[in-house]
């Protein structure tokens, strides 16, 4: 019964919330079999878009599918320049759609079946073993060969040397130039029983914004790359995916490759975002998380610390134990 519920409920919810989506730009005819697709829910992120598309195109993503939650910053003008993007528009509540999960599940079910699907926010950049010399297609081919359907990664919160307001981001810029620092240690992992997911917390947000109640710090584990089947579903953002086996980071007997998601949240853009989210209250737990962030920004908190590490390459993440190569030679 539980299993049936876990299959049926997300599908029905995805179907219900999928109805609120209207296609605004449909290039999905161009999707070839075996293509790697990227899915993303966004709102007013146009400034990040050019570099985002560029980065993932170089990694090997063939088509981008966006859910535009009522952006008003010229998103459509920007995105319609690109042949490999499709956009669904909605004015419905982000919160009601379980923070975008139902929209994603709907589109993943419709277009992602049989494809390797990357579900990332526009401020998340995937780094995987050998990503400077191998493509996503080679990674997914390896996982296919090893009969693994998902790729585990943890989120690394990146920040600049000054306050959040000092990290000014320009269009087309590599966000690493603005926010090259991250916390190399201070990560906690626990296995949780419900979906068998590894629950990772830590990084700068725990250290600065949740120092007094670190157990409330948001999850950093993400399973962003999944070979999608019709009955698969994201449960809580991309932190948890159903069926449970997809949450498994490694093979049964040995280590599998895992990745890191560089997360560029703490740019100067973040102030407006946090202000807006405080009013909209469309985020998790009544945007309580955003309240803490806003306090931090207003107090001109410097996220940088003596123990911060400048990001260099994927090899550095392996050396720090944040990522594994597995036995992928």
């Amino acid at each position: 019964m539980k299993t049936i519920g876990r299959v049926a409920v997300p599908i029905m919810q995805a179907h219900r919330h999928g109805k609120t989506l209207t296609p605004a730009l449909d290039n999905t005819d161009a999707i070839k079999p075996g293509a790697i697709l990227a899915f993303s829910v966004l709102r007013n992120e146009t400034i990040r878009l050019p570099y985002f598309l560029d980065y993932y195109r170089k990694l090997g993503v063939n088509h981008f599918i966006f859910v535009d939650n009522d952006s008003n910053d010229g998103f459509m003008d920007e995105v319609s320049k690109h042949q490999d993007c499709s956009v669904w528009h909605t004015q419905a509540s982000y919160k009601a759609a379980k923070y975008g999960v139902h929209w994603l599940n709907y589109l993943l079910k419709k277009y992602g079946r049989g494809h390797w699907c990357l579900t990332v926010d526009p401020d998340e950049f995937l780094v995987f073993p050998y990503c400077d010399s191998r493509t996503l297609l080679e990674l997914t081919a390896y996982l296919d060969q090893e009969q693994k359907e998902s790729f585990f990664s943890i989120m690394l919160d990146m920040y600049g040397a000054g306050t959040v307001d000092d990290a000014v981001y320009q269009k087309d810029q590599d966000p690493l130039a603005v926010c090259p620092w991250f916390d190399a240690t201070g990560y906690y992992q626990d296995k949780r029983p419900n979906f068998n997911e590894w629950w990772v917390r830590g990084g700068v947000r725990r250290r600065v914004f949740f120092a007094d109640q670190p157990w409330h710090a948001p999850a950093l584990n993400k399973t962003v790359l999944v070979k999608w089947h019709w009955y698969y579903a994201y449960v809580a953002s991309t932190h948890i995916v159903w069926p449970n086996r997809l949450n498994r980071p490694h093979f049964q007997d040995t280590l599998a490759p895992t990745g890191c998601l560089l997360h560029f949240k703490y740019l100067s853009l973040f102030r407006d975002k946090a202000n807006e989210e405080m009013e909209r209250k469309e985020h998790y737990a009544d945007s309580r998380e955003y309240q803490r962030y806003l306090e931090g920004i207003n107090n001109k908190t410097v996220l940088w610390n003596k123990a911060s590490v400048r990001f260099q390459s994927w090899r550095q993440c392996v050396d720090l134990g944040l990522m594994t190569v597995g036995r992928w030679f």
Partner: peptide
């Protein structure tokens, strides 16, 4: 080395 993880190094998702 990679079979079980690098010695003296954290492994994410395997404890």
């Amino acid at each position: 080395v990679q079979w079980r993880g690098i010695p003296n190094r954290r492994v994410m998702g395997r404890q």
